[in-house]
């Protein structure tokens, strides 16, 4: 198939180039990140940029490699299990290693914050929440505990925990799930990081609490001019909150771009399939359409074909014969699919 007008094969540093050349330098650039565990290739050639002050969503199903990607950036992967290969990571223009030992001092904690899905297991049950937040100031700002606790109380108030000053002496079990997540967020943003990585921060919460936590994260993004990378499997959350979205399947990015474009006019059949499989409260007459089959297991070999082809209604012979490369489109969108023009043209599968 000929390369279509307006598109070109993607090479290294051109990935996700901002549409406007005068746009700000990306806060974080990830190039060609691959993660292996033994002989298993779990993440392959992931490249993206995060712009300061924006919220980017990383979407995918279980096992697609989205959490591994986040942990690799933070240098949190266990090096006895995982090998990070071929990667170039730049933060504020400076080159970082993916090796946890070679991260600059303060990269975790000061420059980046990390919020996990399960607030209960992320907090130490034997320590008051005040001390857990205060540790950030003691370790990174060399404050004494007394002043650090004062800062901790300010942080609890900052994440809108009522009566913050009186709660710094409380233990995690005295907080509800949503309040515990606020405590974690307070720890993550205590030192005004440039980047917040939130891995399914609301999956364990009720919808009403989820909405509040998402609003809090979005407010903090604005107040601290902080980039947010939110990992989620919920396209509803993406649509409501994120400026940009990246879709991951079987260890590879398959599509990326501006949220409205991706959610309303996605090019990749997997993206479209994910959205079609969500029940739509605003349109109950639209039936949910399941994607048939299931994601490939990491041990299955998909190197020489599109990993999605067994589930894809648009698949052509070529999709089985070779793996599509990532294409860079106008406007900074990316897509990894031979057949996307047919998908976009609305030609039935």
């Amino acid at each position: 198939m000929a390369i279509r007008g307006g598109t070109q094969p993607l090479t290294g540093t051109e990935m996700n180039r901002p549409a406007d050349p005068a746009a700000a330098r990306p806060l974080l650039s990830v190039r060609d990140l691959s993660i292996r565990a033994g002989s298993l290739e779990l993440v392959r050639g992931v490249s993206f940029d995060l712009q300061p002050g924006t919220m980017t969503a990383l979407v995918g199903e279980s096992g697609s490699g989205k959490s591994l990607t986040a942990q690799a950036i933070l240098g949190l992967l266990d090096r006895e299990v995982y090998t990070v290969a071929g990667a170039d990571l730049r933060f504020q223009g400076g080159r970082l290693g993916f090796d946890g030992n070679r991260l600059p001092k303060g990269f975790r904690g000061q420059l980046t914050g990390y919020v996990l899905q399960d607030p209960t297991s992320a907090l130490d049950p034997t320590m008051t929440v005040g001390r857990q937040i205060a540790e950030m100031f003691v370790v990174h700002r060399r404050m004494d505990m007394r002043s650090a606790l004062k800062e901790a109380a300010k942080m609890l108030d900052f994440v809108r925990i009522p009566n913050a000053a009186s709660r710094i002496g409380d233990y995690p079990h005295q907080f509800s799930g949503g309040m515990k997540q606020r405590v974690l967020i307070a720890m993550a943003v205590a030192l005004s990081p440039r980047l917040l990585i939130a891995d399914e921060p609301t999956t364990a919460l009720d919808v009403t609490v989820q909405a509040e936590i998402l609003a809090l994260i979005d407010d903090l993004r604005v107040q601290l001019d902080m980039a947010v990378l939110i990992i989620t499997h919920d396209f509803g959350v993406v649509y409501q909150c994120a400026d940009r979205v990246m879709v991951m399947y079987a260890g590879k990015l398959v599509e990326g771009g501006e949220t409205l474009q991706i959610t309303q006019n996605g090019r990749h059949p997997y993206t479209r399939g994910l959205i079609a499989s969500i029940p739509d409260l605003d349109d109950l007459d639209r039936p949910v359409v399941a994607i048939p089959g299931q994601p490939p297991r990491p041990e299955s070999s998909w190197i020489d074909s599109c990993a999605f082809h067994p589930r894809c209604a648009w698949k052509a012979d070529r999709c089985i014969a070779e793996a599509p490369a990532m294409e860079q489109l106008d406007g900074g969108d990316i897509v990894r699919c031979f057949e996307w023009p047919r998908v976009v043209a609305g030609a039935g599968p």
Partner: peptide, 23 residues
């Protein structure tokens, strides 16, 4: 509950509702 459900229409309304404490 309906106001807090993430949906694929009315972009941004989820956060607005949450900020307005409709929940």
């Amino acid at each position: 509950l309906i106001a807090a459900s993430p949906r694929l229409k009315h972009r941004g309304v989820l956060l607005e509702n949450a900020r307005a404490r409709l929940v």
